[in-house]
Every structure is written in structure tokens, then in C-alpha cells.
Design a protein around this nucleic acid. Structure first.
Lengths: 141, 141
DNA sequence: ATCGTTGCAAATGTTTTGCATGTCA
DNA sequence: TGACATGCAAAACATTTGCAACGAT
């Protein structure tokens, strides 16, 4: 086990370019609509319900590809699943997540960034990055 | 999948009291020594190397018990494992983790707490909690 | 003696991989 | 036509559970 942030662009793309396929388009589409974190299995179910013919394996592989490409945010749930979400803004941000319905709001705050950097420096840490998730119950729940 | 903070005291203790056993003491001991996050499997290995006779199942069960009792912090690693760490201070805090050696420093900052609460309230979220991990490379690495 | 604990084996659930087949460029 | 993509089945893992044997009180 190694504790480090989720790899966003670890393995280098082998060589040849990627192909546009029906399946990849379908995964990308469904993630454009929804803004919540979804697991691979949920996405697979959704696609099936929408009449898409796609294998679970392909969903997993596509999500990994998109994550490596920086198009998706990936988090680990407490249930041990990996959940993915389209990363609308390319830059750094945090998430405000409703415990009940899963509604998510992207937030950002220079205050936190500054604090994190200051604390890290105080302890002699370099090349800082951080993950922050705020949980709560949203007004409609 | 349900996104919510790691359950710290979910299931109620049935009725009878707990027993002190060699195995539970061993797990507690090893966690008192080390301050890093360790997975159940690592702890099991450590104990075996120290000559302890203990089953992996028991390690898992003991860690869960201690977590429910609020004695341990549990986090999900990006590799999909659950890592545990003794929670020295009973109160809320965050972690500064070295990407290389895994060294961990407990930090706390009212600034972040305030910011998180403010942002959450702005979006109508209640019963706020949050998780924050800062990653970096420590001075000795 | 009683009832929580242990630990093996087996089950579960998620994600990955081998490989034959299909398909975009 | 190729090289990459797909998807089934099987493998790989982490974790949980059934259950008979154990051990603490």
C-alpha cells in the first residue's frame, strides 16, 4: 500500500492514437449529463437501461483511460468502490457532497490552498497537493 | 454506493462486554508503536514477524472494532485498501502525509474548519463534516 | 459452564487480465 | 489490412461470513 493522491496521468500513452467507438462515446455522454460521482457498475447499469450494448470490462477500461487523461475525478468510497465524475473545470477544486442524495457542488477556496501550503512548509514538506471533501446534508434533503 | 464519511460508531455494541485477548492486545500494541497508516494485511504480517500467532480474520475484526470505538482513524487508499492509524488526539484533525516514506504529521487548522462551514452554509448544507489530506515530500526524502 | 473470540475455509464484491473476436482508420 | 477495442470468462484481491473449536470470566 502506498498513500498518495489518485494518479491522474501515470502511465504514458503507448504510441498509437485512441479510437472513437460507440462505447466510449456512450460513457462520455452519460458523464456529461450527470454531475454526481458514479461507480463503474452504476454507469454500466445506466447505459444498459438506456439500451446501450456495452460490457462492464469496457466501462472499467474507459473510465481508467479518461481518468488518466485528466478528464475525470476519481475517488474511493467508504464501501470500497471507485467513483468517477466529470471534471468540469480543468483547475484545482474541491467537492461539497450531500450525504443523502449525493448532490455535488464544486467549490474552491484560496484560503484552504494557502493554509495547506503554509502548514506543509512549516513541517518541511515540498511538492504539496491535497484532497478535501466536505460532506453534509443539502437543503432539499 | 453511498458517499459519506467513514463510519466511526455505526453498529451498537450488542450487550455483553468485550474480552481482553492476546490477539487484541497485540494489535493494539503494534498500533501504539507505529504512527503511520497501516493496512490490515500489513499489521497481520508485522505481528507474524514478531512471532505472534493470529489470523488475518481476527486482525480485520479487531481493527473494525477499534475503529467503531473511535480508537482508530480509517482511510481508503487509492489502491483500494483500508488503512488504519491510532488516533492520538480524540478531537478533529487532518493529516500531512509524505508521498515517499509515508511519514505522517497530525495538523489542525481553524481556518479550514471555518472555511468549510462557511462554504457549506452558503450552499444550504447542514451537519457538515469534512476530510482533508495534504500530501507532499518530507524534508528527509 | 457460559458466551464472546478465534481462525479456517468458503463466500462476496470489486476490479483486472487473458485471449479470441470485432471494428475503426 | 492492421492495430486497437471489446467482452466473456477466469483470475486477482481485499474483506466478510459460516461455523466448529477455544478461551476468558
Amino acid at each position: 500500500m502506498t498513500t498518495r493522491p489518485v494518479a491522474k496521468a501515470d502511465r504514458a500513452k503507448p504510441s498509437g492514437a485512441q479510437r472513437r467507438t460507440r462505447q466510449r462515446a456512450a460513457v462520455a455522454d452519460i458523464l456529461s449529463d450527470q454531475h454526481d460521482f458514479r461507480t463503474a457498475q452504476q454507469i454500466h447499469d445506466d447505459l444498459r437501461h438506456h439500451g446501450e450494448r456495452i460490457g462492464l470490462t469496457t466501462v472499467y477500461r474507459t473510465l481508467q483511460l479518461m481518468t488518466d487523461a485528466g478528464e475525470l475525478d476519481a475517488i474511493r468510497t467508504n464501501e470500497g468502490e471507485t467513483a468517477y465524475r466529470r471534471c468540469s473545470t480543468g483547475h484545482h477544486h474541491h467537492h461539497l457532497v450531500c450525504r443523502i442524495c449525493g448532490r455535488t457542488v464544486e467549490v474552491s477556496g484560496p484560503a484552504v490552498e494557502r493554509w495547506a501550503n503554509a502548514v506543509a512548509e512549516e513541517y518541511g514538506f515540498r511538492e504539496i497537493s491535497h484532497d478535501l471533501e466536505i460532506f453534509g446534508t443539502c437543503d432539499t434533503c
